[in-house]
């Protein structure tokens, strides 16, 4: 067993090339080891003190979110909670305040859980991940990254250093909604994110919808086209229920998941359209529209 604290990205990449696994907040790795899900890797490199990975950069082409930016950082960030509201909806629902203070976006993305709350928002926002190793840097679309539950196509020596989000089109916004049985310490039963762009007449000209916890990875709903908000929401709901391939487990049956993911998808489209039209719906959307409460 070895444990190395990296202070620079280069230190971390060197450790990874020597066979170490990275740990940042530890909210997946350490908790998983304690619960017997997977033993702690024998060689660890702590990356949580690499200051440069904690930053959010706003550029002409969009926003670059460092891998160590926490869910709490995201849910409090002025730009992310407004222009990339769907992502902030997801981060604001993760675990508890303490989980959100240590859990990082990079860790969430690389853990590749199909139930991750930031996954479907990142997908509809067109996110790319930046992977670095001593061999070089590459960027790939986030849907390409996830290959199965807990699996990515990243090589063992590659470190996720940032998530890139393109600048949103005018009159566009996003939303993420999840089905939850309680309001804290919850794991998504199902969830859905939508990103929409409105035409001048208020109808939807472009739409993307992605689904959480209904397939081995986060999946994008295919075949959606523009139209009135009500029509697109209904079509998204139907397509989500049809394209989902959920399992039955103790959280829910496949039938119930298939139905409710459609409900979430339709509501996410509606909320994203309201935001795209300039309405301020606070983060997280779950509290604002109140699943099971006032709506």
């Amino acid at each position: 067993m070895s444990f190395f604290i990296a202070h620079t990205v280069h230190d971390a990449l060197t450790a990874l090339s020597d066979g170490a696994r990275p740990v940042a907040g530890g909210s997946d790795l350490v908790v998983g080891a304690r619960h017997g899900k997977a033993p702690l890797p024998p060689h660890l490199v702590a990356i949580d003190r690499i200051a440069e990975l904690r930053e959010v950069h706003h550029t002409d082409s969009g926003v670059i979110i460092g891998a160590l930016v926490t869910h709490h950082d995201i849910e409090m960030h002025a730009l992310l909670t407004t222009s990339y509201a769907g992502l902030a909806d997801g981060s604001a629902l993760v675990g508890s305040p303490s989980t959100r203070n240590v859990g990082t976006l990079g860790g969430n993305v690389m853990n590749a859980s199909p139930a991750m709350d930031t996954g479907s928002p990142l997908l509809v926002l067109g996110a790319e991940v930046e992977l670095q190793s001593l061999r070089g840097t590459r960027r790939l679309g986030i849907a390409e990254l996830w290959t199965g539950p807990g699996r990515t196509c990243a090589e063992p020596d590659e470190l996720c250093v940032a998530v890139h989000l393109p600048a949103p089109a005018p009159n566009s916004n996003s939303a993420y909604l999840r089905l939850e049985y309680r309001r804290a310490m919850e794991i998504a039963v199902v969830g859905a994110a939508a990103a929409v762009t409105l035409a001048a007449d208020g109808s939807i000209s472009a739409v993307r919808v992605a689904l959480t916890a209904v397939a081995p990875t986060i999946i994008e709903v295919v075949g959606l086209v523009g139209g009135t908000v009500a029509d697109v929401a209904a079509a998204a709901a139907a397509a989500a229920s049809e394209q989902a391939t959920p399992i039955s487990d103790q959280r829910a049956s496949d039938r119930y998941r298939r139905h409710t993911v459609g409900v979430m998808a339709g509501r996410a489209v509606q909320a994203a359209a309201r935001r795209a039209g300039g309405e301020m719906i606070p983060v997280p959307l779950n509290r604002a529209v109140g699943i099971g409460a006032a709506s």
Binding site: L179, E180, Y181, V263, I291, G292, A293, A294
Partner: peptide, 13 residues
């Protein structure tokens, strides 16, 4: 209580 009829989620207010 408030019931979300589309999902069955119930909240006690």
């Amino acid at each position: 209580v408030k019931l979300d009829r589309d999902t069955g989620v119930t909240r006690v207010l």
